[in-house]
Amino acid sequence: MPQWRTWHRPLVVFAAAMAVTAVVSGIGLLVDDRVLAGSAIWFKPFKFAVSFVAYALALAWMLTLLTRGRRTGWWAGTVVALASLAEMAIIVGQVVRGKRSHFNNATPFDASLFAAMGATVVILWAGTLVIAILLMRARIADRASAWAIRSGVVLALVGAGFGFLMTRPSQEQRAAGNLDTADVIGAHSVGVPDGGPSMALTGWSTTGGDLRVPHFVGMHALQLLPLFLMALVALAPRLARLRDPRVRLRLVLVASGSYAAVTALVAWQALRGQPLIHPDAATLVATALVLAATAAGTYGALRPSSPAHTSRTTDKELVS
C-alpha cells in the first residue's frame, strides 16, 4: 500500500474533519435530548460523518493507484470532498436549527437547502464516476487487486444511486396530493411513514422497507472488497493455497459477485416494503440461493492451480 502521505490530500483532510464531526455528534447524542422524525437529532450527522470517513479514505487511497489521468483524478477527488463537505454543512446546520435536512419542504428556505443537498449528491456521484472510469483504465499489476478495487467502486456507485430513489414522493405522499404545499417530500421508508419503529444503531425501519439498506450495503463495497483482498494476502503466509494469485483472483471474483447479489437482494426486499429483519419466504429462498452460489464459487475458487503455473508465480504478486 502506498505511504499515506501520497494519498489525495483534500479527501484526507475532509476525512479528518468528519472524524471531528463524528466526535462532536457523539457528544450531541449524549447531551442533547431532542428527537426529530423519531430519532435522536444528532444521530444523522453522526452516521453520515462515520460513513464519510471510510468513504473518503478509501477514495484517497485508490487515487494513488492511477497510472493515467492523475490530474483529472485529483480534481475529481477534490470535487467529491467539497460536495460532501457542503452536504455535511447543511445536515449539521439543520440539526442546530432543530429542522429536518432530508426531504424538508416546510418553508422555501428549507426546500432550497434540500435542493442544494440534492445537487451536492449528484456532484459527489459524478466525481466518483470519473474516479471509477480512471480506475478501470489504470494498469494495476495484481489482477485480484484490480478486480477488488474496480468492483468496489462500481458497487459504491450503485449504492449511492439508491439515494436518488429516496427523493421521490412516496406512494402515500402522492395519494395525499398537494405536493407543492407538503412539508415533507420523499422518504427513506417504503410502505410506512418515516420515524416509526427502527433497528438500534442503524435506524432502519422494522415495519416497512428501507432504502437506506441497499444504499449502505452498496456504498461500503468501496472499503469491504479491498479489505477482503487484504485479508487474503495477510493469510497467505499461513495458508499455502492463498499464495497462488489465481486463487486470490477467483475468490475476489466470487466475493464481488456475491456482494452484488446481496445488494440486489436487499434492494428488492426494500422496494417491496419489507423490513430487513422480517424476510418473507421469497426473500429467504433468494438468500439461500445466494449463499449456495457463494459456497459453490468459493469451493471452485480454492481448487489448486496447475503446478506449471504455480512455479512461475512469486510472492512479489502479493499486494503490498
Results as ranks from 00 to 15, higher is better:
Pro45Gly: 04
Trp75Lys: 02
Asp32Pro: 01
Leu66Met: 09
Asp33Glu: 14
Phe52Ala: 10
Arg71Lys: 11
Phe48Gly: 01
Thr72Pro: 02
Ala60Gly: 11
Ala54Lys: 01
Leu63Asn: 08
Trp42Ile: 04
Lys47Trp: 00
Ser51Ala: 15
Trp61Glu: 14
Trp75Gln: 08
Trp42Arg: 01
Lys47Val: 06
Ala37Thr: 13
Ala54Glu: 06
Leu59Ser: 08
Ala60Cys: 13
Leu66Gly: 03
Phe43Ala: 14
Gly73Asn: 12
Trp75Met: 13
Lys47Ile: 01
Gly73Phe: 04
Val53Cys: 06
Ala60Arg: 08
Leu66Cys: 07
Asp33Tyr: 05
Leu66His: 09
Val53Ser: 04
Leu36Ile: 14
Leu36Arg: 13
Asp33Ile: 07
Ala54Gln: 12
Arg68Gly: 14
Leu65Asn: 07
Met62Asn: 02
Met62Arg: 10
Gly69Pro: 12
Arg68Gln: 14
Leu65Gln: 13
Leu57Glu: 02
Thr72Leu: 15
Ala54His: 02
Ser51Lys: 07
Leu63Pro: 00
Trp42Leu: 01
Phe46Ser: 00
Gly69Ala: 11
Thr72Glu: 12
Met62Ile: 05
Ser51Leu: 09
Lys44Met: 05
Leu65Cys: 06
Pro45Tyr: 06
Asp32Arg: 05
Thr72Tyr: 09
Leu59Trp: 12
Leu36Lys: 04
Trp42Asn: 02
Ser51Trp: 03
Ile41Lys: 01
Pro45Val: 03
Val35Asp: 11
Asp32Gln: 11
Gly38Val: 04
Asp32Met: 11
Val53Asn: 00
Leu57Trp: 04
Val53Gln: 03
Ser51Arg: 06
Trp75Ile: 15
Leu57Tyr: 10
Arg68Thr: 15
Trp74Gln: 13
Pro45Gln: 03
Ala58Pro: 14
Thr72Ala: 15
Leu66Thr: 08
Thr67Gln: 09
Val35Pro: 01
Thr64Ser: 10
Thr67Tyr: 07
Gly73Tyr: 05
Trp61Ala: 13
Trp42Ser: 01
Leu63His: 08
Leu59Phe: 09
Val50Pro: 10
Trp75Leu: 14
Trp75Ala: 01
Ala49Pro: 04
Lys44Trp: 00
Thr64Ala: 07
Leu66Asn: 06
Pro45Glu: 10
Arg68Lys: 15
Gly73Pro: 05
Lys47Glu: 06
Leu36Trp: 07
Trp75Tyr: 15
Ile41Met: 03
Leu59Tyr: 07
Arg68Trp: 11
Val50Trp: 02
Phe52Pro: 06
Gly73Met: 12
Lys47Gly: 09
Arg70Gln: 15
Trp42Ala: 11
Phe43Leu: 14
Phe52Ser: 12
Met62Gly: 02
Asp32Val: 11
Met62Lys: 05
Phe52Asn: 12
Leu66Phe: 12
Ala56Phe: 03
Phe43Val: 06
Tyr55Met: 13
Arg68Leu: 04
Gly38Leu: 09
Ala54Leu: 15
Thr72Phe: 07
